[in-house]
Design a protein around this nucleic acid. Structure first.
Lengths: 224, 224
DNA sequence: TTCGTACACCGTACGTCGTACAGCGTACTA
DNA sequence: TAGTACGCTGTACGACGTACGGTGTACGAA
């Protein structure tokens, strides 16, 4: 057993790329991505700032690794069910995970090369679609459509300034409506009122759109 | 005419919030949002860094204003056509604009209060849907679904590391396939091959998914 | 003509950031 | 015992956002 392997086994003492990246994710969850600096991260790990550079070539690489950890948390589409259930499951998981790590969405735009967990996820999704009878081309289309919906929903959800129905009601009354003169924004006023009255649940909103999309894709597969 | 109004008329000399924000957008387009610093922006405007703070309270406010300029560029759904054409038009415009300013997508996640252009756009879209016969609740659903698709697509498109079909072919051969052992990623290999063969056009991909979504929404309106 | 004031703008300085570079002690191999 | 690699670190540099305290110019009032 080499010294390196020993280190990796006795990983509770000392640093490791794993520990660095995981703590970075925690820090970003707590303080936002702007609050994540190499010095603060090192502090949280009880190390000097430059120690991190032994495990990570640059902050950019750290961010890439953080994104891939997020993808690792997303459930793969389960096998042994119909494709719609499988997609529903992995999409719901993706939404939850991205809501837990909202910084990840904003980071994706600037990060161009997918990590291993990302690739594994894409492979599993594509496999599920192909086995459900979608052609190569249709599977690509379905992939784009489903991922667009999931990421876009997560992006919108992340930019909502409230988390609960109560907060929505408060914000609507105190912040939104004052910005919306009824004669200039009649429809937004109508919507706001209806939304407050009906309550607010992003999970429900999510499945509504998702089910529509899945139903729209259904006839495009060659049911083998 | 006050001194201030005179300034605003003779706006080609001197700064203004308009000029500052517009130049900031240009800079971000050229160099990415990380390349946008107050000092560099001031330099591009031929001014000192601190001069910007006369027009903008903070960099955060500048970023908010930049986002709103982006929304201003997006076409409103035209009146006088059927709702699907109107939605297609504004969605296509949004995709183009966001592709032109990819940094805007990543910024949205962290910016929670919508600017005036954003509100105007939402009002116009909601108006279009309501007039097409969607109930208040259904219009909200449709809004979420359509926006999710548009933003999510733009996000994915922004994180593609290529712009043309040729670049895709090159990257696939040189970068992607080497990362994808065929026994571990059979379906992604299959997809990559098909994609290179079929060519690549994000605009086509976009309308494919959009048309599916629009068709799925059609039966949900009460055609008055 | 002089003065006070508001406007538009800016130089300096502070704390923080990412990270290049040149180390340090320890553990292991030869 | 000497040499080497590993894991880690302190210092320093240039760039960042921006608080603070200016400066010159234009203009109305006296």
């Amino acid at each position: 057993m080499s010294a390196k392997e020993q280190r990796q086994v006795a990983s509770d003492a000392g640093l490791s790329k794993q520990r660095v990246v995981i703590e970075a994710v925690r820090l970003a969850d707590r303080e936002g991505v702007d609050g994540l600096s190499m010095r603060r991260l090192a502090g949280a790990l009880g190390a000097g700032a430059m120690s991190l550079y032994y495990y990570v070539a640059s902050k950019e690489e750290l961010l890439d690794a953080m994104i891939d950890i997020v993808f690792e948390e997303i459930d793969l589409p389960p096998e042994g069910t119909d494709w719609q259930s499988a997609m529903r499951r992995r999409a719901a998981s993706a939404r939850q995970v991205l809501a837990r790590h909202p910084w990840a969405i904003g980071l994706m735009e600037s990060r161009t090369s997918p990590g291993p967990a990302n690739l594994r996820h894409r492979e599993a999704v594509t496999a599920c679609l192909r086995r459900a009878g979608f052609s190569v081309l249709m599977a690509t289309h379905a992939n784009w459509l489903l991922d667009s919906y999931v990421y876009g929903f997560a992006l919108q959800e992340a930019s909502l300034p409230f988390d609960t129905a109560d907060e929505l009601a408060d914000m609507t009354e105190d912040v939104f409506l004052p910005q919306l003169p009824p004669d200039e924004f009649p429809y937004l006023n109508e919507s706001a009122a209806a939304l407050v009255a009906a309550g607010y649940d992003p999970a429900e909103e999510f499945v509504f759109g998702l089910d529509l999309v899945l139903a729209a894709l259904e006839p495009l597969r060659a049911s083998a």
